[in-house]
Design a protein around this nucleic acid. Structure first.
Lengths: 199, 199
DNA sequence: GTTAGCATGTAAGGAGTTACATGATTTT
DNA sequence: AAAATCATGTAACTCCTTACATGCTAAC
């Protein structure tokens, strides 16, 4: 999840950790908070894997050996950039078609990078996501039908609001799927429709 | 989170683990899945804390010492019930007024047991939750105003859908707050309005 | 009589958080 | 020159999941 967000953002432009964190949060609409305690270890791990590199830290003139962290002395901004391996790995992640792609935690991140995703795969993921949400909707409907009258006002209100939310999400996904299909009709190739859908 | 859900459900009626799990999931509308690997250790911990007890396991006739788990021999359903300490602890949890109460993970559970919550506290939590969601909405609006035109179709669509969702939640909360205030007008005492709000 | 679903649990590990520790830069 | 905010990182911990291991019970 976090890996994909980081790689995707660094694919646009190199960034330092602090800025990267703000962009990850903003990318997902502020729903997940993301602390430094999870960001920095992730960056370290990805550096060790060779997916990202550290560019010349601003504020230190000495050339750093790759794994000597600037523990003492003047620290500057540590700017991270994608390596060739990192780009490749990001493309691999974008190409994964497994059913995890439409689970709650992953879908938003995948969707955020849809512009770089194959058109056919986009449709596949949107349809999988819709099935997933429809399934939840049906479960919720059944639960409501079962418990209606037997539970208190607040439980009912909570379940009803939940049902309304998933209903809305299904409609949203259906609209997206329709507009994807229209996009594919007169364009059988797998490039992105860069056009500017107004409203 | 889990503790409150378990205590609240066991406060209604004793249950065995398997059934308890289904009810926790249903209570929250199936948004969180809850695995046995988190349920059973929680039950064990709560038993050690003295909040719950194990009722006569069906299928074993021998009287069990309190901490001898039926590791061998025939296992029956292990039915858990709230102790006096457990009831007290649940009441304590219900009475907590901290700002964690309106964070995402906790709010739903708290809300599910609103019928047992003090009316004043209900209002307090609903208002806190609304402030929290409004704050997110404003952040999202600002992000949208900032990035509009600069980001791709899909990112925009994701942020717009997120904004619509938080907008809906704010309206929902506002309606609940209004109806709570109406309920309090002609009832200054802090008991629950057991009446049947129709529609 | 075998499959499906009910039922209970443990061990290992994933994915994050909070709290801490430190220092640089910008604003007031 | 003090305060705010930018910036980087670690250690300990929380809360949950997956995978495993086991056995009972109803239905086909």
């Amino acid at each position: 999840m976090l890996d994909m967000a980081i790689l995707g953002l660094l694919a646009e432009t190199p960034l330092h950790g602090y800025e990267l964190r703000k962009r990850v949060v903003s990318l997902l609409g502020g729903f997940r908070a993301l602390s430094y305690g999870s960001l920095y270890p992730a960056l370290r791990r990805m550096r060790e894997q060779g997916w990202i590199t550290v560019q010349e830290p601003v504020g230190t003139s000495a050339a750093l050996p790759a794994d000597a962290p600037a523990l003492t002395g003047k620290r500057g901004k540590v700017v991270y950039a994608l390596t060739a391996d990192g780009k490749e790995h990001f493309q691999e992640l974008l190409g994964e078609a497994g059913p995890e792609a439409w689970e709650d935690e992953r879908f938003d991140v995948r969707f955020a990078f849809f512009a770089q995703t194959d058109a056919e795969l986009r449709l596949h993921i949107l349809e999988g996501r819709r099935r997933r949400v429809e399934q939840r909707r049906d479960g919720l409907r059944a639960a409501l039908a079962r418990t209606r009258q037997r539970v208190d006002h607040y439980t009912l209100e909570l379940q009803q609001h939940g049902l309304d939310s998933v209903d809305r999400e299904v409609r949203w996904l259906s609209e997206l799927i329709d507009s994807e299909r229209v996009g594919q009709q007169h364009d059988t190739s797998r490039t992105t429709p860069t056009g500017g859908h107004s409203s």
